[in-house]
Design a protein around this nucleic acid. Structure first.
Lengths: 235, 235
DNA sequence: TGTTGATATATCGAACTGATATATCATGCT
DNA sequence: AGCATGATATATCAGTTCGATATATCAACA
C-alpha cells in the first residue's frame, strides 16, 4: 500500500523522506501522518529492490561550492523555501557549511515505474482498509489506461454494494441494539449509500468521456466531477 | 482497541474466540473480519493480565456424561445451535464422544470490568483509525455515565471539525489536482460534513435526554436517534 | 465415499503505528 | 543576548494488527 503511494509521488518528482510524508498528509489526506517507522523502512525496501535510488545530499562540500551546489533540487514548496532560507543564511555566515541536516533524495527508476504500474493496475487487496486503498488508486488514476480506470471504479462499486448489503442485514437483524448502536448502524448505511452514488457519478462521467472523446469534450469534462460536487450538501 | 471490543462483548456474555470474531463482524461491522492473529493473542494477553478467565471445554468426558454435560453454556445463537446439533448427533451415535472441537470459553473478571471502564471512559487514542475507535466506543456508550457519554460525542465532534478544516484547506490549496483527485477531496469533505451533522444530532438528543429526564420521557426517547435516522437520504 | 464448508484454535512473517532519540537551524519571546 | 519552541530531517523500537496458513472435528450433500 505504502509502496504504491511512494512510487506514485516519485513518478512525478523526486523527494526526500520527510517531504513524502508531508505530501501524503497535506495533499491527499490519506495516510494522515504516516509514521516514520513505516516510511523509512519502505524507502529502504524500495531502494534495495532497485525501484528507487537514494542519493545522499551531503551538507559538507569540500569543493568551493557556488551558491547553487548545496541545493539538491527538491522542487517542493517547503523544500525550496527551506533551501532559500539556508542559502541566505549560508551566504551571510559561511558558504562552506551545509544547508541543513543531510537529506537523502529519492528518484524513481525504470524498475520502479514498472512496479508502480503493476501495483496500480493489479488487483486490489481485500480487507486492508479498502477505502484508503481505493482513494490512493483514484489519486493516481490518471496514470491508468481508460479501461483499467473504469475497472477500478466498478470493482470499488461492487465492493460497496456488498458492504451495503452487510450494513442492511445488520440493521434488519439488530433488533436488540440500543439507540446508540442503532444510530451507528444507520449512519454507516447512509455513508455507504453516499459512497455508492458518488461512484455512480464517477462511472457515468468516465463512460461518457470514453464513449465520446470528440463532440463537445468541454461539456463532457465539466460533467466529470462537477456533478458529484454539485450534489454536495451545503451544511 | 481490540481489548476494548473483547471486554465489551464479554461484559455482557461469555464467549469463545471464534464467536467473538463473528459477533464483531456480523453485529458491529467494525473490525470487518478481525484476524485470528489479533484475536487469540489478545485473549491470551487479557487472560495473562487477569481480565478474563478462559475455561477449556474438554470434548472427551470420562464421566458417564448425561445430556447436559458436554454443552458449555455458550448462550450464543450460533453456539447453541451447534450444541444442539452435536447433542442430537452424540445421543444418536456415541454419548462419550465430545461435542465438536474443544473450545475455550472466556468469562470477564472484576479486574476485566474495571479495565473495560477505564478503556471506555479514558482518552481516545489519536490517529489510530479514529472512526473505528469512536464507533466501538459508541456501541458501548450505554455503559458510560451520561456526562462521560456527552464528552465522548463532543470530543469526536471536535476531531471531525479539525478534519473538516484540513479537508477544506486541501480542497482550496489543490489547484493542480486532476479531476479524480479533486473529486476524491470533495467527496471526503462531504462525508466529513455528513459525519458532523450526525454528531450534532446525537449531541442534541443526548443533551435533551439529560436535561429533561422527566416531563414526557417518551417523547425525549423518540427524538433520541429517530431524528438522525429521519434525516437519512432515501435513495 | 469423498469433498466441501462451517466450526475452532494457533502461529508466522509482514506491515503499520506511536514513541523516542538525535541533530540542525529559524523564529520569536524575554 | 540568551533561550525556548518548533520546523526540518533521519532512524530505530516495541507493540498491534493483518493475511496466510496449518491443524482438527464434524455436518451436509452428492
Amino acid at each position: 500500500m505504502l509502496d504504491l503511494a511512494i512510487l506514485g509521488l516519485l513518478s512525478e518528482h523526486e523527494f526526500h523522506g520527510y517531504e513524502i510524508r508531508k505530501r501524503l498528509r497535506d495533499e491527499l489526506g490519506l495516510f494522515a501522518n504516516i509514521s516514520f517507522g513505516s516510511l523509512y523502512p519502505a524507502l529502504s525496501r524500495l531502494e534495495l529492490s532497485g525501484a528507487v535510488i537514494g542519493t545522499e545530499s551531503r551538507p559538507v562540500a569540500p569543493t568551493p561550492a557556488p551558491a547553487w551546489a548545496p541545493i539538491p533540487l527538491t522542487g517542493s514548496l517547503g523544500g525550496e523555501r527551506a533551501a532559500l532560507r539556508s542559502r541566505r543564511a549560508g551566504a551571510a555566515r559561511s558558504s562552506t557549511r551545509g544547508t541543513k541536516r543531510s537529506r537523502k533524495v529519492y528518484r524513481i527508476t525504470d524498475t520502479g515505474r514498472r512496479m508502480f504500474e503493476e501495483l496500480l493496475g493489479g488487483e486490489e487487496p481485500v480487507g486492508t482498509d479498502e477505502a484508503r486503498s481505493f482513494g490512493l488508486r483514484l489519486a493516481f488514476a490518471r496514470h491508468l489506461a481508460p479501461q483499467a480506470r473504469l475497472g477500478l471504479l466498478e470493482r470499488r462499486r461492487d465492493q460497496l454494494i456488498r458492504r451495503l448489503a452487510a450494513d442492511q442485514a445488520r440493521a434488519a437483524a439488530g433488533g436488540d441494539f440500543d439507540s446508540y448502536t442503532r444510530s451507528l448502524v444507520e449512519h454507516t448505511t447512509e455513508t455507504t449509500q453516499h459512497d455508492i452514488s458518488w461512484l455512480d457519478n464517477l462511472i457515468e462521467s468516465e463512460k461518457l468521456k470514453q464513449a465520446a472523446p470528440r463532440t463537445e469534450s468541454r461539456s463532457t469534462r465539466t460533467v466529470g466531477t462537477g456533478s458529484a460536487a454539485a450534489k454536495g450538501t451545503e451544511l
